[in-house]
């Protein structure tokens, strides 16, 4: 029972991170190494707006997510777009962004852990398992956010445009779809999802300058296992990884969890380079 619940929460956070990461790759073919920075900025943004500015938490969270979303669009327009022709160029520039963000947080806030307040401070018991309310909230919000994203892509005109570009960017362009504007939109969604994960997980995971590493490593592992560019693949892989880590922590030792994602990546690359749902090998 413990494994069921804790695994679901971990999976939900991973899914929020991986879906945004895979979305921007699937649509714009951008491998965004700064994805973890969006997560970090979401958490730090909430910290600054609540602890220093003194705003109420819900407002601070919304502002932080909106701010990060705008930041994502700026990064896409100013830095990634000029280098879009080169995969390597995009990798380098997004890596640079993530390092700049990390160092900036380090200089401004120091390397200590910061406290992001929780939305819910009470404990909930489900079937004899004590779970912090914030974790359950994270699970619920993640499911809602990813569900909404799915509906948006499947049911709206803009969503169809996103799908069209991800299937064949060239053809979509000839159909009159403004691909640059769609890229910005996708970047905004992707950044907002990562920031949302940061805001929700910040209160119970650690908030410090190098916190962007964990999401980027996990997101990478998940999209490789699930298939780069495949959203259902990411969700399935997020569930697998979340539960695998919880199982290992439970049955073996907490010090072994970090190796799970690395091992999963390695096995997938060796045995099924395209991932579970991938149509072709990404590398």
């Amino acid at each position: 029972m413990e494994i069921l619940i804790y695994g679901a929460v971990t999976s939900a956070i991973y899914a929020m991170l991986a879906v945004g990461f895979t979305l921007i790759f699937g649509v714009a073919r951008v491998l965004n190494l700064a994805h973890g920075s969006f997560y970090a900025l979401g958490a730090y943004g909430t910290y600054v707006l609540t602890s220093i500015v003194g705003l109420p938490l819900w407002l601070a969270a919304l502002l932080a997510i909106a701010g990060v979303s705008v930041f994502g669009v700026v990064v896409e327009k100013a830095l990634i777009r000029p280098l879009r022709y080169s995969q390597l160029g995009v990798l380098m520039i997004t890596l640079a962004v993530s390092l700049v963000v990390e160092q900036a947080l380090f200089l401004i806030f120091g390397s200590e852990y910061r406290n992001v307040p929780a939305f819910i401070d009470t404990k909930v018991s489900i079937g004899g398992v004590d779970v912090a309310g914030q974790r359950l909230l994270t699970l619920v919000v993640a499911v809602v956010a990813i569900g909404a994203l799915y509906l948006f892509i499947q049911r709206t005109r803009l969503g169809s445009a996103i799908l069209a570009i991800s299937q064949d960017a060239e053809a979509a362009k000839y159909m009159g779809i403004p691909s640059d504007r769609i890229f910005s939109l996708v970047m905004a969604i992707s950044a907002a999802l990562a920031a949302l994960a940061g805001v929700l997980a910040g209160p119970f995971l650690s908030v410090q300058p190098s916190m962007h590493l964990l999401p980027i490593v996990k997101a990478f592992a998940i999209v490789i296992v699930g298939g780069l560019g495949s959203i259902p693949g990411s969700i399935l892989a997020a569930l697998m990884l979340g539960y695998a880590e919880t199982l290992v922590a439970y049955l073996i030792s907490t010090s072994w969890t970090e190796i799970v994602s690395v091992l999963a990546t390695l096995l997938t690359l060796v045995f099924r380079p395209a991932g579970i749902f991938g149509k072709r090998a990404a590398f």
Binding site: E2, V9, V129, R135, L214, T246, Y250, S253, E258
Partner: peptide
């Protein structure tokens, strides 16, 4: 008796085991 990695950020499985 259990050791955890210094990078660990989610202690819930460990705390559940302690309980």
């Amino acid at each position: 008796t259990e050791l955890f990695d210094t990078q660990t950020s989610d202690f819930s499985p460990l705390l559940a085991k302690i309980k």
